[in-house]
Design a protein around this nucleic acid. Structure first.
Lengths: 215, 215
DNA sequence: ACAAAAGTGTTGTCCTTACACCCATGT
DNA sequence: ACATGGGTGTAAGGACAACACTTTTGT
């Protein structure tokens, strides 16, 4: 039989944790400062070694809570991206890295641990490459993957916030009218009759959108 | 520091090996018969344990050559699909499974090891679920991922073959005219002036398409 | 009144699907 | 001749982008 001699690579889970800050109107990426030996003091994606028998999503939550100080129930959704397998990506030895995304509820988590998506500093290991490779996948998920979108924007949000998030992920700001029609075609997403307060600088009060209780 | 105590799950690589048979006009999935203990004698996807420091694509080639008897240079392309992490998916203990696709050049590989994509028998482990989950991803790759498409169809192919492959992967056969326009928009794919022989039953000789030497 | 920003309606451009018709081959 | 099946042209529908114009707020 296949001798189960343990000569596999180790498996780590590295998380692209995204959070929308409605005040600053930007999407932030969670960045951890490494406490230990390889690249100690440098910035990196929050990551953990996958425990034996541990689910990937559980490891991702463990990374985000442990390395970013986020409450466990603030992690609203998790999903897979790509697996990176360059054997030399970790100086300690060959380590597989499963990249996951996680969305974190907007709330008070101040500190230097979150940086705008388009101002990510150089990161340890191959994490800069991971971010670069995964960014287009995140963009494609917006408005197509309801779990991702709802996780990022919350159960209720305004058109203005939807515009901000779309701009942060795609790089340019859509016309409000066109984004509204896009959202009309997202299953489970409905316009409400309510309007939110206008922005500090004025302008028309934006519509409030809501996810359907469930079909 | 993070003690590198090896308590990770093992990592296996399971391959959805695809081959186009131009004579039978179907796309085949490579199926292995298990020689060893768990599920011995049952059918399963070709898979191997990932070696320490081994690249995923190398492991995939090893699985296809070792378990399906395919020559190494007949593997024309390899790519990632999804990683499966149910801890109980392997009775020997928690094992991560990275699902990969691989395309195999059309040639003489007779035997019961290849089955049409829509006649896949029940498989060992969670491999039936893997096939079911990955099938839509394979469909999306056709005509979008040039490596996948070229790997499956080869450097030169006819419209008739393109129709067969598309039907096998998507479930219905497009109109030849529409598929031609789709292929016109695939970067690197060009119509040639040549026509191939008509089918045995007659009909107009189909156009020959070719991939660009490279840009 | 003015600026700012969301909402409405309209238009044009793709891409996709569909189908009527023509063309080249085998029997 | 006729069936088979690819190739050509054309047209309807939806998705998407762009923009003129209107509405509702803050200053």
């Amino acid at each position: 039989m296949d001798t189960p001699r343990v000569e596999s690579s180790l498996v780590s889970v590295d998380v692209l944790a995204l959070r929308f800050d409605p005040d600053a109107r930007v999407v932030l990426l969670g960045i951890a400062t490494r406490a230990h030996d390889p690249f100690a003091g440098a910035r990196a994606l929050p990551g953990v070694l996958l425990g034996r028998g541990e689910r990937l999503r559980d490891a991702a939550v463990r990374a985000v809570t442990g390395k970013l100080g986020v409450a466990g129930d603030a992690v609203t959704a998790v999903g897979q991206l790509i697996t990176f397998d360059e054997p030399s990506r970790d100086p300690r030895g060959p380590t597989l890295s499963v990249a996951l995304w996680a969305t974190v509820a907007s709330g008070r988590h101040e500190g230097p641990r979150w940086v705008p998506l388009d101002q990510v500093p150089p990161l340890a290991f191959d994490h800069s490459r991971i971010v670069a490779d995964c960014r287009p996948l995140l963009r494609d998920r917006l408005w197509r993957d309801p779990a991702f979108t709802a996780g990022l924007l919350g159960p209720e949000f305004t058109t203005a916030q939807a515009l901000d998030v779309t701009e942060a992920l795609t790089g340019d700001r859509p016309y409000p009218a066109n984004l509204g029609r896009t959202m009309d075609r997202v299953p489970g997403l409905k316009r409400t009759a309510r309007h939110a307060a206008a922005l500090p600088k004025g302008g028309r009060p934006p519509l409030v959108w809501r996810w359907d209780p469930t079909p």
